[in-house]
Design a binder for these strands. Structure first.
Lengths: 114, 114
DNA sequence: CTGAATCCAGCTGGATACTG
DNA sequence: CAGTATCCAGCTGGATTCAG
């Protein structure tokens, strides 16, 4: 029973805490897009197929709140905003890569060509 | 755009496919319980705090459907059923362990004592 | 271009009751 | 002991509209 409460939410184990940071449909695609440097909202929107405007905005906010990325606004017209991974998020990349490897192994096992 | 369809569901990437196998609140706790050998329904129920009857049953079914565990029934009275990890599920254990490590690192960063 | 707010349909999971 | 079925409240996320 190593559960704990953080920011008014109950977690049953450390993995749940990790998944609050990188889980869900969209956080990993966003983090992977940013692995090679900063990107703007519009470019992320183009780079991630199927994501809706609302989900991209809300997921970016959540990642920012969790200190997974920083947000830099430029005082230009039209507005320009760039997002960049923090060190905390960079630590997640190897874990994400291992998850991807396992996913590919499962797909092979299921007879899906990747 | 490497999305694909499997069993009538759309996946955007291999990680989503992996998370269909080990994701959600309860699949990882179940898999970890079984890492040292077979267990019965009742013992799993006792070993996993907070899980409801319905969730344990449905998650066990899903894991069985995805070939993550095998189900052995004994013709006894009262009934006895044992669940055991498949090789496919055992391959997930290192990935799960790495996720747990990252979760603990995040907790430390957030000032939570584990 | 980037972001906030609202409405709403569909899924998730808890509580409960019932079965062999 | 193990499993099924039903009801229902709450959350998730898409579509849409408005704004600096």
């Amino acid at each position: 029973m190593n559960e704990f409460i953080h920011n008014n939410r109950l977690y049953y184990n450390p993995i749940e805490f990790a998944m609050a940071h990188i889980g869900g449909t969209w956080k990993i695609p966003i983090l992977r897009c940013l692995r090679n440097g900063a990107m703007r909202y519009g470019d992320l929107k183009l780079a991630i197929p199927r994501i809706s405007h609302k989900m991209l905005i809300t997921q970016l906010r959540e990642l920012e709140d969790k200190k997974m990325l920083t947000r830099h606004t430029f005082n230009e017209k039209p507005p320009r905003v760039e997002y960049r991974l923090t060190a905390l998020a960079q630590q997640a990349l190897p874990v994400i890569d291992q998850l991807a490897e396992y996913g590919i192994a499962l797909m092979k096992e299921a007879g899906i060509d990747s």
